[in-house]
Design a protein around this nucleic acid. Structure first.
Length: 205
DNA sequence: ACTACGATCGACT
DNA sequence: GTCGATCGTAGTT
């Protein structure tokens, strides 16, 4: 995948359906990305790098596209993939995945089953054992990578405002959240809105 | 050293 | 739907 040349919001949509893999000494974890958000840099009031802000925590945001940015809040880890060239601090937040490999270990990591394993940004990092150790490393060059060979393609992508961005004017309502229509692992998805897998992915029987 | 504030989650009404 | 827990980060003294 190209994490540098397309617009960040295009990269966020391209990531939907991709198989995210985390290889650890104990276990291989993988899951299909079903929900993302774009954070589009210095002009974006919701972005950590708004106004060119730079702190030790934010170092990874200023590196080249493909760098992994992990930060913590409320004792949860958040996984982002940096986009664009160095010193153009934009990123895509991975908000939910559908578990593929290592499901039993993910359930154990989370002490939960079913959609509760990974239907939120803090949940999927705990399920897949993603920590700040990965911060600053590069996608596809280390333990975390995208397996394009085994990825899927969404039938329809829904666009919506980002979650948890109050009082940021136009940036609160900016349509920069993307998810796979009808997928049960999307955060906050109502059960009655979910669809069978044949209608969620292309070329899935 | 002290204070304010979350890109959340889970429990509860 | 609302609400509280709880702590790392950063800005200020």
């Amino acid at each position: 995948m190209d994490f540098i040349h397309p617009a960040t919001k295009e990269i966020a949509q391209n990531l939907l359906g991709k198989l995210l893999v985390h290889k650890t000494h104990a276990c291989i974890y993988s899951g299909f990305i079903v929900e993302t958000e774009a954070y589009v840099g210095m002009d974006d009031m919701a972005c950590h790098s708004y106004g060119g802000k730079n702190t030790p925590r934010l170092q990874s945001m200023y590196k080249a596209g493909g760098t992994i940015y992990v930060y913590t809040m409320h004792n949860h880890h958040m996984l982002n993939i940096v986009t664009k060239e160095a010193n153009n601090p934009q990123a895509v937040l991975i908000r939910a995945v559908e578990p593929a490999e290592g499901i039993e270990q993910m359930a154990a990591n989370r002490q939960q089953t079913g959609i509760l394993i990974s239907n939120g940004p803090g949940k999927l990092t705990k399920a897949m054992a993603i920590t700040k150790e990965l911060d600053g490393t590069v996608m596809n060059e280390g333990a975390l990578y995208i397996d394009e060979e085994n990825s899927k393609e969404p039938n329809k992508i829904i666009t919506a405002p980002r979650i948890g961005i109050p009082n940021k004017g136009d940036w609160t309502i900016a349509p920069l959240r993307y998810y796979v229509k009808g997928h049960p692992f999307v955060s906050g998805m109502a059960k009655k809105e979910t669809l069978p897998s044949t209608k969620i992915w292309k070329n899935v029987l």
